[in-house]
Design a protein around this nucleic acid. Structure first.
Lengths: 204, 204
DNA sequence: ATTGTAACTTAACGGTGTTAAGTTTGATTC
DNA sequence: GAATCAAACTTAACACCGTTAAGTTACAAT
């Protein structure tokens, strides 16, 4: 009777093996440069086996995105614990976000930048509702709401304000990841400047 | 004697034909979804002919990027003419940038977002120096420098400030283009909020 | 008329994501 | 213990892709 369970556990194992192999290769070489056949080679199964566990290549990507978001979410939570004020938390959070992106550039690419290619497909298959992405953004939003309630930030549309912060963070992160050829000022200086600018802007 | 010239003109014509076909298809379907063979079909030449005029698929992309940048650059110049203060110009410029991106999402994708995939290749082949990209960014920088000189913006590192503005604009643009599934507040509201926030932040 | 060259094409290489059909494996039933 | 049956996995293939080497055509210059 435990056999079926063991089978299921093994099946789950292979699923995880695929996910692990794919993640490692995506991170090392980038999503576009990793083929299903390469993943299959790595786990020593035939390419088609992967399709027993994932709908398609994009599906693997999405699973990894969720994991990555979960990591970021946890880091944000830790920051909140270590923060005195919600404003302090926000400021540290922005830096953490950008640095997280730079630490995991291919994850970031895959999570925030790559989905562009899917156009319509994605919105049908992959639901933002209930995703780690939603939770992470909700977290940012709640901190901003808190800061506004405290009077640390000016009163205003909380959604517009959170989305503005997200846009700024995301912009900086993706520029730093994708445009290594541009003569940026130092990473730290830029993060500081952006954080100060945005937060100051949300105070007045 | 005019023969050679006519030949060259015809050669240049085909080059432009390829560029026009590619641009139209990239814009309609996205870079990734347009193959060399499709472009060839459209211009009614064999796929290999394209390689007589462009190094590879990315080369076509880069040429189109330059054109697109030139368009954006001109729009920025017009804005400057119609602006009273450099601060006004900056504010209008940010809106124009984002809206330009939304009007040409695939151009924008290709110009600012896609280069990520090329990793090292790009930096070798495609030089930022002298590109329309450089000129456009230089333009933004000069307006910010002017605003600082006037005392309309606080004193600070001009490069860090310009890059911050660029990051924020770019972030908003690429989020709006790529994440249609996210429940953003209205485009106009968001652009206004971001512009106000960033500019206010650069004043204090 | 012949030569030489530029423009263009054919055919192919080695890859891609994905699917239909077939095979192996191994526990369950008779 | 042999037959059955489903799950797990593979083989082979389809229809593409970017790109290149080799070959052909067309045509101006000699």
């Amino acid at each position: 009777m435990g056999l079926r369970e063991r089978r299921e556990r093994e099946k789950e194992n292979l699923r995880q093996e695929i996910l692990d192999a794919a993640r490692e290769m995506f991170v090392a070489e980038g999503f576009q440069n990793v083929s299903m056949r390469k993943i299959a080679d790595k786990i020593e199964y035939s390419p088609t086996t992967i399709y027993l566990y994932f709908k398609d290549k994009n599906d693997i990507l999405m699973q990894i995105c969720e994991e990555t978001f979960a990591l970021l979410y946890r880091r944000m939570q830790e920051i909140e614990k270590q923060s005195q004020s919600s404003l302090d938390c926000l400021s540290k959070g922005i830096r953490a976000y950008v640095e997280f992106g730079l630490e995991h550039p291919h994850h970031y690419e895959v999570t925030f930048i790559a989905p562009i290619w899917d156009d319509l497909d994605k919105s049908e298959e992959y639901k933002f509702e209930g995703s780690m992405g939603e939770r992470t953004f909700g977290y940012l939003r709640s901190i901003i709401a808190e800061a506004v309630a405290e009077g640390s930030l000016k009163k205003g549309d909380i959604d517009a304000m959170s989305q503005t912060v997200w846009a700024a963070m995301h912009g900086l992160t993706s520029l730093l990841i994708g445009h290594g050829d541009f003569p940026f000022v130092s990473k730290d200086k830029l993060i500081d400047c952006l954080t100060e600018t945005v937060l100051d802007g949300l105070k007045t």
